[in-house]
Amino acid sequence: MSQDFPFIDKIPLARYIDQGLDWLTFQFAFITRAISTVLGNGVDLVVHLLTYPPPWLVIAGFTALAWYLAGRRVGIGTAAGLLFLWNLQLWVATMETLTLVLFATTVTICIALPIGILGGLSERFHRAIMPILDFMQTMPAFVYLIPAIPFFGLGQVSAMFATVIFSMPPAIRLTTLGIRQVPQELVEAADAFGATRRQKLIMVQLPLAVPTIMAGINQTIMLALSMVVIAAMIGAGGLGGEVWRAIQRLQPGDGFEAGIAIVIVAMILDRVTQHIGRKHKPNP
């Protein structure tokens, strides 16, 4: 029996998508190439800045920052974790991964925050973006790598592009949720005193949404980290690159070392962002 669909030939979906992407690549090459250059140089610069000074100095810096943002315990944990990674000789790879994640997250937040706020304020916009977010989140992350390459070439920027798309939905969703969760009575009180929409947003809605927004950013960072191994397949390097190499050479020990390093970075970023969210809860 034939496996083919009767009556209608196969819809050439793949070809349409390819043609569409080709067209986009051609039309927007000058933009994507510019983005690629700027971001690529930016990442290189930051990685350089982080790996140029002796690691103990950088570790001291990160420890101080974590301590300031999230308290003593997280500070000590950060110091211990990073010293361990230095010892494992994964210092450069860790800094590469950290830079990539922070860049990707920054870009994500810059896009997700305005979209999330709009979604929180407008019911219609909210309904329009929900299916898109579902699509972005359920599409296997690998798939984003493929079109990223013609746009941005092999390497870190393509990896970032895929990471941004993959990790954006929770940031948008939780920003929207945070805005919508603000009690109606408080919005009404702001209205009663004649607050403009902007004032309402800045003085009431956004501050009250901060804890929820931070939860979204936290999830975004975790998703971004989960992309590093995948991104290594197109040459993003970093800790993902170490894992990838261990897989290819069947060296489970090296693979676990790099894997544990990723977990440590994840834990540090998680604790710090969680604390920022908690600090902004009303009534400390």
Partner: peptide, 21 residues
């Protein structure tokens, strides 16, 4: 309406509606 509310009205709410932050 915003102008009117600013220039003429003050309101006290049944459930207080204070800004917790």
């Amino acid at each position: 309406v915003l102008k009117l509310r600013r220039s003429k009205f003050g309101m006290v709410f049944q459930n207080f509606a204070l800004f917790p932050h």
